[in-house]
């Protein structure tokens, strides 16, 4: 079979996260597994496909979840899909997070908006071997309290002795009791040694740019900051050419890159 053709998945559950974001639970018809941070191409049969990074635990074998924001033609199709529909998946593709390199480290995870989706998969993977890490700080910024995803799980994420969870929103009604401010405002006074810690960032390009600059300012080493990049992708296999930037295919050489390797490239944040 051609490497560009999808396998069947049944959409077994849809979870409304926010007015524009839903989490879809898929049951693959043929065996499927992924490393956290890898992405898949989801197909709406006969209509189109797009790349997404699963938001579920890589250790969960019989189903996987993808959290999708409605932003364009294909995501609109998914948002209109019904439980029980049979859709398609290709992949997984790309490198994923190098979990073994994180061993024994203090980790800072910074998520922006729907960028928390791939990071949730990572968080599940980290929690499954929590003894491997010294400390985990998770900072999550959403546009407003209504835009926070996984609300029903955040308490569960906080409920770990080694974990500190910081939440902020860009703007809020006066009734909001939590922090207000962009995600970089949560990065001061971190309870970790920034010189030796590892940073993992996922969010919109502008957020990743400013978080990266902030982390460098805080003393993080550029080769210990990992970014999950996204670009227009068609094949996901390093053949169609769409996602190449400079000397990298985002799909094949990434989507997870060390800041060190891309910080001097042109157009990387666009």
């Amino acid at each position: 079979m051609s490497l560009y053709l999808p396998n069947k998945v049944t959409l077994i559950k849809i979870i409304e996260e926010t007015p524009t974001i839903k989490t879809f639970v898929f049951k693959p018809h043929v065996s499927f597994s992924f490393k956290t941070g890898q992405f898949v191409e989801l197909t709406y049969p006969g209509a189109g496909e797009a790349p997404f990074t699963p938001s579920s635990s890589p250790n969960k074998k019989d189903e996987f979840e993808v959290t999708i924001m409605r932003v364009g033609r294909v995501t609109e199709l998914f948002h209109n899909a019904k439980e029980g529909e049979v859709l398609g998946v290709r992949g997984p593709y790309g490198n994923g997070y190098p979990l073994d390199d994180f061993k024994g480290k203090e980790l800072l995870i910074v998520g922006g908006g729907v960028g928390l989706a791939p990071l949730r998969s990572l968080i599940y993977a980290l929690y499954a071997r929590i003894n491997d890490f010294k400390k985990i700080v998770i900072c999550y910024g959403a546009r407003s309290p209504q835009d926070i995803i996984y609300k029903y799980q955040l308490d569960e994420f906080k409920d770990q002795t080694k974990v500190e969870f910081r939440l902020t929103v860009d703007r809020a009604e006066p009734t909001w009791k939590g922090n207000v401010g962009i995600v970089t405002t949560t990065l001061d006074k971190l309870p970790i040694d920034t010189k030796s810690a590892t940073g993992i960032v996922c969010g919109p390009p502008i957020m990743m740019k400013f978080v990266s600059l902030k982390l460098l300012e805080l003393g993080f080493a550029p080769d210990k900051v990992y970014l999950s990049m996204e670009k227009n992708m068609s094949c996901g296999l390093g053949k169609c050419g769409h996602c190449r930037l400079g000397k990298y295919y985002i799909c094949k050489d990434g989507p997870v890159f060390k800041l060190q390797d891309i910080k001097d490239m042109w157009d990387i944040w666009d």
């Binding site: 209509a47 496909e49 769409h242």
Partner: peptide
Amino acid sequence: HCFLLFDTKDENGYFKGRIWDG
């Protein structure tokens, strides 16, 4: 060599094709 994959329907069901892109 760049291309774009596209999805459509044909008489046999769902169909994927590839078109040169650049």
